[in-house]
Amino acid sequence: MAAGLQGVGGFPQNPYTLISSRDATLVPLDEGSYPVVLPPVDDPEAMQRWEPWVRAYVCQAALLEPLSFAKIGAQGAGIWHVETTVAAPPDAPSALSTTPKPLARLDRPAVHAFKEQVKKVLSWADLREERTAEIIAQLDPQFAFWGSVVYLHPSRTPRTLELMNIALLLAVNVEMQFKHALACWRPIEYSAQIQPLITTPGHGALPSGHSTQAYIVAHVLQRLLDLPDSHPVSVQLQRQSARIATNRVVAGVHFPADSMAGRLLGETLGEYFVARCKTGRNWTPRFFDGTVMTGHEDLMPPTQPLDGPNAPDFYKPFGAKESAAASGVLRYMWDKAIKEWEDVRFQ
Score class of each variant (00 low, 15 high):
R281H: 14
T284N: 12
Q240Y: 01
Y190M: 05
F255D: 02
S259L: 13
V233S: 05
G290L: 03
R286L: 07
S211D: 07
R281M: 14
P228M: 06
Q238I: 03
M293Y: 09
W185K: 09
R223S: 07
S259Y: 07
Y215R: 15
D226P: 01
S230P: 00
L225C: 10
V235G: 05
T212R: 06
A205V: 02
S241L: 04
A218T: 05
A192P: 12
T284A: 13
T294L: 11
V233T: 13
L264V: 08
G262V: 08
N282W: 15
E271G: 12
P228V: 06
T294Q: 12
R276W: 09
L224N: 04
Q193W: 15
I216N: 06
T279H: 11
W283S: 05
V292Q: 04
I198R: 12
F287K: 04
T268V: 07
A242D: 05
H296Q: 12
D226E: 11
F287L: 09
G209T: 05
L182W: 10
L264C: 02
R248L: 09
A183H: 15
A257E: 02
L221Q: 03
H231S: 00
Q213D: 14
P201G: 05
Q195M: 07
S191D: 11
T291D: 02
A192T: 15
P228K: 08
Q213A: 14
D226T: 12
T199S: 10
A214T: 09
W185S: 07
L269T: 03
L182I: 13
M293K: 10
F288L: 01
D258W: 00
G209N: 07
K278L: 14
F287W: 15
R286W: 02
V235S: 10
E271C: 14
P256G: 12
V292G: 01
R286P: 00
H231L: 00
T212V: 13
P207L: 04
V220I: 11
T279P: 01
H254V: 02
S191R: 05
G252E: 04
Q195D: 08
T212G: 07
V292L: 06
I244M: 06
A257P: 01
T268G: 01
V274H: 06
A218R: 04
R286G: 00
H231I: 00
H231D: 00
T200L: 09
S208G: 14
H203F: 12
G262D: 08
T284F: 09
A183N: 15
E271M: 15
P201F: 10
V235F: 03
R276K: 13
V274D: 05
Y215T: 14
S241K: 04
A257C: 10
T279K: 09
T246Y: 12
H219L: 13
G266P: 11
N247R: 10
P228F: 11
L182R: 05
V220E: 01
F287V: 05
F288C: 00
T279F: 12
G252Y: 00
G290T: 04
G266Y: 11
